[in-house]
Every structure is written in C-alpha cells, then in structure tokens.
C-alpha cells in the first residue's frame, strides 16, 4: 500500500514544486531587465544605511550597551541583527504585498497563469520562493558586512543565515495572505504604518524591558519581535531553548499565511 501511494504523492509534490518554480522563474526573467536591477540592488543599501546611522552614529552617543543577560556589547552589535531581521521582513513584505497586489489587480498576470495547469496555491508558493531567494541575497550581503565590521563572527553569521530565511518565509507567507485582502493602493498606507511600528518597537533599537508591561505583551505577540530575538541570539552567540520557540512561531505564521493566501486567491481569481 505504502509503496503504491508514496511514489504517487512524491510525483504530485514534484509537479507542484515544478509549477511553483515556473512562477518564480517568471520573476527571474523580469529581474534580468535593467530597470529592475536598480531597484533590486538599491534595496540592499537601506538596512546598511540604518546600521551605519543608528548603529554607529547614534551608537557613538551610547558608550557600552548591556544586554539583559548582563553581557556588554557595542550598540552597533545590538542593532545589527535587528536590522537584518527588519530587512528580511521588509524585503519579503514588499515582494508579497505590493508586488503581488500589482500583479493580481493591475497587471492581471495571474489571470493568464491560472489558465494553465498552475493552481493558486502554487502561484503563492512560487512568489514566496522568489521572495526568499531575493531576501537571501540581501541577508548574505548584510551578514558579510556585519562580519566585516566585527559585529559578529563568521561562524555565527553562517548559523544566522538559515534563520533569516525563516524570518523571510514568515513575513512572505503573511504578506501574501494580506495582499489578497487589499482593496486599493491606499490600503498600503495602513500596512506601512503597522510595518514601520513593528520596525521601531520590536526590540530593534532598544531592549523591550524598558517598555510598560502592556506594550511588552503587544510587542511579544507581533512577528518581528521573534525574528529579532532569534537573529540577535544567533549573531551574538547567545544560544538557548527559547530560540526554538521563536522558530516555531515564525514557521507557524508562514504556513497559516500560505494556506490563507492560496485559498483567497482561488476565491478572487476563479470567479
């Protein structure tokens, strides 16, 4: 029985993966055009600039920085992993919310795609795969800069890389689900405010213990906090079982997002 079912399941999974890869392949083809490159490359600079400005510039005004566990690190070393997490979030959200909404509503790309054997869930998966590839390139570059500035070691940077993929995966899945609820470009104003608030308050620039208790609860429920904690733990070499909790949270978020996105796209496009 098992021998009969498994190969068939595997073949089905492989076809699904291939079709998702074809969706991602479309973005690779588009990325080869010159204008797109500019946007892609420039996206890398933003987190680096933040690191230099806040991490080094403001960091110069803060002498040592004591972590909750008592160790003292430079402010830049404290902020850098948070910028890495935020960059993974911003990259994944940009690709999945704005770009996906544009493709769905304005370019009407998926109308053409769904006339082929490709199914909505596979479109969602393919877009997410692309977001992860693109995000990973940014993450590797940023980790390289962190190592170069002496903000983490090569070993910990390598350990942190898969975690950045998980963070991207979580926000990509969530972003896609959100994109299916967006009505017009104006709605992105709201998304941006929430995104920016997370960026500022998720223990990014200062530890959350300085917040009032109710603020802490809100922050600890939101996803970026978990991404920041996970990456900061890895980049500063502070391992603990708590990190697995952050990983579990992020993977759960990604899965829920993907399932919702696949379903909603079916509803929106198969009218």
């Amino acid at each position: 029985m098992v021998t009969l079912v498994l190969p068939r399941l595997a073949a089905r999974a492989e076809r699904r993966f291939q079709r998702a890869a074809a969706v991602a392949g479309r973005n690779v083809a588009a990325a080869r055009h010159v204008g797109y490159w500019w946007v892609l490359v420039s996206g890398f600079f933003e987190p680096v600039l933040y690191l230099l400005s806040i991490g080094l510039g403001v960091g110069a005004l803060i002498k040592g920085f004591t972590l909750p566990d008592g160790r003292t690190v430079s402010y830049a070393a404290f902020v850098a992993p948070a910028m890495l997490a935020a960059s993974a979030m911003n990259g994944a959200l940009a690709e999945t919310t704005m770009n996906m909404f544009g493709k769905m509503k304005y370019m009407r790309l998926y109308d053409g795609v769904l006339a082929t054997p490709v199914q909505p869930f596979e479109v969602a998966l393919g877009e997410l795969m692309w977001a992860l590839v693109r995000g990973s390139i940014y993450s590797v570059a940023f980790l390289g800069i962190m190592v170069g500035m002496g903000l983490t070691s090569t070993g910990w940077a390598i350990a942190a890389f898969p975690a950045t993929v998980i963070v991207g995966f979580a926000f990509g899945g969530m972003g896609m689900a959100i994109a299916t609820y967006v009505r017009s470009w104006q709605d992105f104003d709201y998304i941006m405010v929430v995104q920016f608030a997370m960026f500022l308050f998720s223990g990014t620039f200062a530890p959350v213990d300085s917040y009032a208790w109710f603020m802490r609860i809100v922050v600890e429920v939101t996803p970026l906090y978990h991404g920041v904690q996970l990456l900061r733990g890895l980049a500063t070499g502070a391992l603990g079982w708590g990190l697995l909790g952050h990983v579990a949270y992020l993977i759960a978020l990604a899965s829920v997002g993907l399932v919702i996105a696949g379903r909603r796209m079916g509803v929106l496009l198969y009218k």
């Binding site: 500022l200 308050f201 200062a206 300085s210």
Partner: peptide, 24 residues
C-alpha cells in the same frame, strides 16, 4: 491614509528613538 503616513510615522519615530533609545 495620508494622516497615518505623514503624521503618525514621525511621531512613532519620536517615541521609539527619543524616549526608548534616548534613555541610553
């Protein structure tokens, strides 16, 4: 939407940087 992006965002920045980072 524009009230959010052009007024709320800078105020959030003020809170995050001015108050919490400012403490350090």
């Amino acid at each position: 939407g524009s009230v959010l992006s052009s007024f709320l965002l800078p105020v959030l920045f003020l809170l995050a940087m001015g108050l919490s980072v400012g403490g350090y």
